[in-house]
Design a protein around this nucleic acid. Sequence first.
DNA 1: TATTGTTATACTCTATAACTATA
DNA 2: TATAGTTATAGAGTATAACAATA
Lengths: 159, 159
Amino acid sequence: MDRTEGRTRQGLDLGLKKALDLRGLQKTPGFMLRLAQLKFFEGFYESFAELGITPASYAILTIIRDNPGVPPSTLASLLRLKLPNLIKILNEYESSGLIKRNRSKSDRRGVELLLTPKGTKLIQEATRMTDPYNKRMLAALSVVEQATLLELLNRIVPL
Amino acid sequence: MDRTEGRTRQGLDLGLKKALDLRGLQKTPGFMLRLAQLKFFEGFYESFAELGITPASYAILTIIRDNPGVPPSTLASLLRLKLPNLIKILNEYESSGLIKRNRSKSDRRGVELLLTPKGTKLIQEATRMTDPYNKRMLAALSVVEQATLLELLNRIVPL
DNA sequence: TATTGTTATACTCTATAACTATA
DNA sequence: TATAGTTATAGAGTATAACAATA
């Protein structure tokens, strides 16, 4: 691990770390978005580990809470999940007692998703941790800049 | 498919789409980042399909081009890939004749990655398509706003 | 002994096809 | 026939363990 020498014959000294040209990636929005998203996901698992909740869980429970009765198909398209993959998650959540499925009365093919009291409590506790979590992830930005970022993202992918 | 009725007994009319409350997600930076990143990935596959290049390919070839001799371990940590997973990709690229592996002379455990002429040509062609691609992805933003977004992202995940 | 690269393997996430029950 | 939900399954992406060669 000692690096007393570090000769640089060709103008390259990768052994000493750094001296890397990363400007190409820094100017690539898609790559930087991916890095930022990975940071948020890793940070999420740290901050919410005790609740056993994932980013997907958080989004799913939030949507159902704010839109009781939402059907799985709508939920899937909102979250950009394929319906079969969402169904598997919903099965787990129903087994865990977080959500409930109701058959729609108007169209009995349809399903209405609802939170159970347990699910309501869970997303309530999670919501309490979101502010400190987001603040930690965005610590490098001023409050105004944080709002700017959110606004720009909402313009890029309108909901 | 006809929706002449649409009765709204409980103030909910999800059958008619919309009327959904999505403010919770719109205020969630991590979720919006994920949506934006998915948009960029999908758009990438559309724009670069003819070159048979993926977002990962693009990043890998770019880094090697700008930093000839970069070792796999450095590349992996930059791209947030586990080394074994990167190795598989590098094996494919070497089979395809896009990159070359040199044993390092100073430390013969090490590998120096280089682009072949074929790899150089490929990333060259890809680079020509990046501006229109990025412009299309960020069409909702002014040029100034595009620069702002990039700057904020670089502050959140410094390279 | 520690490190770089590599292989093999398991696990998670995502995508596709087909089946059911209603309409 | 078409649609919402569901199941089963295949594929891509990601993670962990162990080994070889070199330091």
